[in-house]
Nucleic acid binder design. Sequence first.
DNA 1: TATGTAAATGTAAACGATTTCATTTTATTC
DNA 2: GAATAAAATGAAATCGTTTACATTTACATA
Lengths: 327, 327
Amino acid sequence: MTNIQQVAKQAGVSVATVSRVLNGQNTVSSKTRIKVEEAIKNLNYEPSMLGRNLRNSESRILLILIPSISNPFYLEIIKGIEQIALSQNYNILLCETDSNPEKENIYFDLVRKKMADGIISMDPAVNIETLKELAEKYSIIQCSEYNLDSGIPYVTIDNEEASYRAVKHLIQIGHKKIALMNSDEKFLYARQREMGYQRALEEHEIPLNDDYIIYTKHLGFEHGQQAVKKILAIQDRPTAIFAVSDLLAIGALKEINASGLHVPKDIAVIGFDKIDFSNMTNPTLTTIAQPMYKMGTVAAEMLIDKIRGNDVDNVILNYELVLREST
Amino acid sequence: MTNIQQVAKQAGVSVATVSRVLNGQNTVSSKTRIKVEEAIKNLNYEPSMLGRNLRNSESRILLILIPSISNPFYLEIIKGIEQIALSQNYNILLCETDSNPEKENIYFDLVRKKMADGIISMDPAVNIETLKELAEKYSIIQCSEYNLDSGIPYVTIDNEEASYRAVKHLIQIGHKKIALMNSDEKFLYARQREMGYQRALEEHEIPLNDDYIIYTKHLGFEHGQQAVKKILAIQDRPTAIFAVSDLLAIGALKEINASGLHVPKDIAVIGFDKIDFSNMTNPTLTTIAQPMYKMGTVAAEMLIDKIRGNDVDNVILNYELVLREST
DNA sequence: TATGTAAATGTAAACGATTTCATTTTATTC
DNA sequence: GAATAAAATGAAATCGTTTACATTTACATA
C-alpha cells in the first residue's frame, strides 16, 4: 500500500507539499502540483483516512440511533440524513438498539471511543440520563422523539396539534365513537398525541370514554392486530380508530378485514406517519404525513453544525393530513 | 480528552503497560493491573479508536452495498450481518447505491481510503468490472446476487430451483395459465428464475406463452401495479401470477383488488422473498422464503474470514415454500 | 546589484494507540 | 546466597496524515 512518503519521493517534493495538493491548497505552484498529481496517478495512491482522521481527531462518521430498522418510518428520515451527510463528506452508521440498553451502550461507546463524531437519536426508549451526560461532551441531536428539559437540541413535529387534526377529521366526517390506539404513555409523543385526541373530543363535546383508549407496547403490525381485537370486542363498538402509527393502523386494517367488517364503511381508520406502505394496503390508509425526509436533512444539518462548535436551535416542522380510502 | 500517556503517568507505569491492560494481555502483574485500572477509572479514560485503527491499519467497519434501503428484503439480511459484525467488534456502514454508479463509486472509495475493511455487495446492478478489480486488493463478498466468473465469493440460494418450486406449486393446485412477472433479464437471478419457470412448465407439458412473461425495470410496489395491468389486459387472461419479488406481488395484489377481481379465486399470486409485509396484506401472500437472516450471518462470517486472510468457499442456502392465502 | 517582500517549499512535531526488543524485577534451584 | 530462568515492565519505533514554523526561492524595486 503506497503512502504519502512514497508519493513525495517519486515527485521529488516533501510530504507537506503532497498534502497540500491533496487538500487543494492554493499555495502550490502549478508546476509542482502537476508533478505531484502525476506521482499520485503513477503509484495509484489513495490517501488513508486512518492517518488523516487521527491527525484531525475526527472520524467523519455520524451515528444514527433507531429502535428498529424494520419500521419504515425511519427509512425516509435516514435518506434525508444521508443526503446531507454525504454532501458534507460524512458517513452514517445505522444503529438499531431494539430499545435494548445494552445494545444502546455499545453504540454510545463508539462516540466515546471517537469512532463517531456525533449522534442523531431517534429512539424514544433511549436512556435519557445517559444521553444527557453524553451530550455534555459530544454532539447530539434528537430527531422526532425528544425531551424538553434535556437541553439536547431536537427536530420534531407538533404532535399534539397533528393528533388533534387527525381526530377532528374523523369527527368532521361524522364519527363520534372514536378509539385511540396509542403506544406506551412513557413516550412523550404518546402523551402529546393523546392530548390532541382529548382536545378534539372536548372541543366537539364528545365525552371521553376510557374504554376507547388502548395502549400497545410496540409500534408493530402485530401489535395493531392485537389491539384492534380488543377494540372490536367492546360492547358499544367505536366507528373509527385513530392509530398513532401507520404500522398499528395497517395491523388494524388487516384484522378488521379478517373479522368480516369493512373499512371505512363499518369502521374508519386513520394512521400516523405516511410510510410508503400506507399506500399499498387495501384500502389505502388515511394518515398524518410527517415530513420525514426533511426531518432527516434538518437533523443532519443541525448535528454537523453542532460538531463544528456552533449553537443550534430546536426545529418544529409541519405535518399534513393525507386523505385516502380508509376514512 | 485524556489519552494513554496521561493514564500511564497517573498509574506510574509506561504506556506499553497500559496498552497491555487495555488489551487484556496476561503478562501484567495483578498489582499493576489494578493500579492501571484505577487510573483509567479516575481519569474517565476511553481509548481512541483513531489511534488504535491507524496503528493496526484497520477501520473495523464493513461496507454493505444495497440498491435501495426501501426494499425490506435487505433489512433482514442486514440484521444477520449486524449480529455477526457486532459480535466480532465490527460495525457496518449501510450504503444505498440507488443502482447509481456515481454513488457506488463514493462507497468504493471508502474501502480504497481504508475507511472500511471490506464489502458485502447485494446490489445486482453493481459495476462488476470495478468490483472484480477491487476484489484483487480488498476483501469482498457477494450476497444474494452474484457473478459466476468473477471469482468473488458469494452466498445465495438456488434461484432456478426455488422458482421451479413456486411454479410447480401453482400447477399442482390446478393452474395452467401462469404468468411470470420478472425483473430485468440483465440480472442473473432474473434469468435463473425464468429458467425455473420454464422448466416447471415444460415438465408438465404446458406450452410456453411469451405474452405471459412481463419484465419490470425495478422491484418496487408501483412496478408490480403497472405490470399486472398489462397482464390483466391479455386476451386469454392468466389464472395465476408468479412474481419474482414480494413487492411486485403486493403491487399486483393491490391492483387486482382494485380492478374488482379476487385473489386467489380469479387469480392466484405467489411472491418471492417472504418479506415481513407479505404477511400483512389482504389476502396474505404465498411466497418463497429466502433464509435472509442466515444469508446475512453467513455473508458476514465469510467477509470477516476473508479480511483475516483466509480463503472462503461459496455457500448456497435452502429456500422454503410458504403457503398462505393468495394461492 | 543589493535588498525587501511574497510565494513556494521543507522540516519536524504532533495525533493516540500497539508492539518489538531490551532491560529490570521476581521466582526458582542448588 | 549465587546463578539462572521466567515474568514484568519500559523505551522507542511505527502507523499515515496535517500543519506550525522555518527556510528557500522568485520577483519587484531602488
